[in-house]
């Protein structure tokens, strides 16, 4: 009797253990399910308004967000006389798009100059083409530019001109990503790894 009871004990002990394993597995599955909505970079869905602007493209054509409907759009604010941060950001996104391969063809990067006084269309065109043909320079008067920067709560400012009239421009360092419908989805920061940017962009481009 005693020995039987003893035999029964470990047997019964296995069942709760099995349940615990099962519960853990279910929990793990649930977590995996949840993480499908977790982006590796900053998710701004619902936090920022959809893409809307009226600017002049580097080709001279007047463009609005409707011209880029159906494409994933990256929006970046910079200026061409920025020798380090802007080229570093653009080179990074060129590498990201290259790594996306075929999917990268559905992405357009819009480089909006915050220095329209010095950045004419030709300079913008030469500048963005130096990186990638998928990069498009956009320019607008102060009013159109400010309505766009205000919309995405980004700021820019001009430094004091030096003796040769050169001045520095401070600007936002982040890149906004919009889905094919023009909805704001992600914010890429300079601290995000290229792997994370590529993974999230792939998801955004893909029909997942």
């Amino acid at each position: 009797m005693v020995s039987r009871a003893r035999n029964g004990f470990p047997h019964e002990g296995v069942r709760p253990a099995l349940w615990a394993v099962l519960a853990a597995l279910l929990l793990a599955l649930a977590l995996v399910g949840c993480s499908r909505n977790d982006w590796r970079t900053k998710d701004i869905s619902g936090l920022m308004p959809s893409l809307k602007f009226q600017l002049t493209a580097e080709s001279g054509k007047q463009v609005t967000a409707a011209d880029y409907e159906g494409r994933v759009v990256l929006l970046y604010f910079g200026y061409t006389r920025c020798p380090d941060v802007c080229p570093t950001t653009l080179a990074r996104f060129k590498r990201a798009l290259d790594r996306l391969g075929k999917a990268g063809r559905d992405v357009t990067l819009l480089f909006v100059t915050v220095d329209p006084k010095r950045d004419d269309l030709q300079t913008l065109r030469q500048y963005t083409n130096a990186f990638d043909p998928r990069f498009v320079g956009l320019r607008g008067d102060k009013e159109s530019l400010d309505s766009l920067t205000k919309r995405y709560r980004v700021t820019y400012g001009y430094g004091k001109p030096d003796d040769s009239g050169n001045y520095e421009v401070s600007h936002s360092s982040a890149v906004f990503a919009f889905d094919r419908e023009g909805k704001a989805r992600l914010l890429f920061r300079s601290t995000d790894s290229l792997d994370d940017v590529v993974a999230d962009l792939r998801r955004l481009v893909g029909k997942e």
Binding site: D84, E168, S170, S172, R189
Partner: peptide
């Protein structure tokens, strides 16, 4: 010789 700085999401030299 310059250094780029990113502070509060703003970049400057």
């Amino acid at each position: 010789i310059h250094r780029s700085e990113i502070k509060d999401g703003q970049s400057r030299m």
